[in-house]
Amino acid sequence: MSPFLRNLFTRAVLPLAAGSWLSACEMIEFSPNDHRAPSHQRDLTAKNLARLAASPLPAQDTLRFVFTGDSQRFYDDVEDLVKSVNQQPDVQFMVVAGDISDFGLGREMRWVDDQLRHLRIPYLTVIGNHDLVANGGEAYERIFGPRNYSFTYGDTKFIMTDTNGREYNFNGRIPDMDWVSAQLRDPAARRHVVLSHVPPLDGDFDPTLREAYAQALREDPRLVFEMNGHRHSHSVSQPFNDGVTYINSYAFERRRYLVVTVWGDKEFRLKHVDF
């Protein structure tokens, strides 16, 4: 064997084959649907809520957050979004309205987190239909957290719920109206915001639950507005003509997001920011 090949073997092939224990084992993926993640990329919802709780908003103070959605396969746009959001004064957190991944794979969710963890503020997510493809629901639960959860920040309770009915083949249980109604009945917070991925008038929302959802929101005196992603383009409307405002986010690819300011009982202002 020539010295060149001997060198190649000892310097390149052997080190590669032996590898370093840890990085090699992390690359050993059992399936694209394998949702194992390093500990810093597990339970991100709980971790971000803990960060948010560490800088509480006093009662009566103005709420201000960044609203975006559908990061999906737009990884190159995330860095600029992070840079832009980090320059926003007085924003308290960011919300991604679902479709963090495109193919429902754990690695995709971690690629987005790899960048969003550079945000100065915590970020929260709600599950989208793409996050439920294949075994994405389980990957989302492992990496982010529950599909339905709520949190109260200052005077506002955020009710985050899974409305991706089509991913469950319209089984009549998504959104979980018992859970949503129980959350809305909670009188502790001055204001409510309901946030989900698929808007109720979309074809991907379970048609048998559309009216129940709209009605529950209509009857909640504390509701400021309902927020969605999925459509990739921004809109503000009252589609049921019942006084309930529905706000849709821009997708990451639109290179634009909303800064939402909320004060008083139900006063709000939307600022559009290009990045």
């Binding site: 084959a17 590898g19 690359m27 050993i28 993926e29 396969r73 990884y75 794979l105 690695r107 690629w111």
Partner: peptide, 28 residues
């Protein structure tokens, strides 16, 4: 040993060369 990837990872990488590196999409 084999280093590999799959069609979905490869597509994600090709469309996002700034944000993703080869190490992001490789499997062992």
């Amino acid at each position: 040993y084999e280093l590999g990837t799959n069609d979905l990872y490869l597509l994600s990488y090709v469309q996002n060369r700034q944000a993703l590196g080869p190490h992001d999409i490789l499997t062992l």
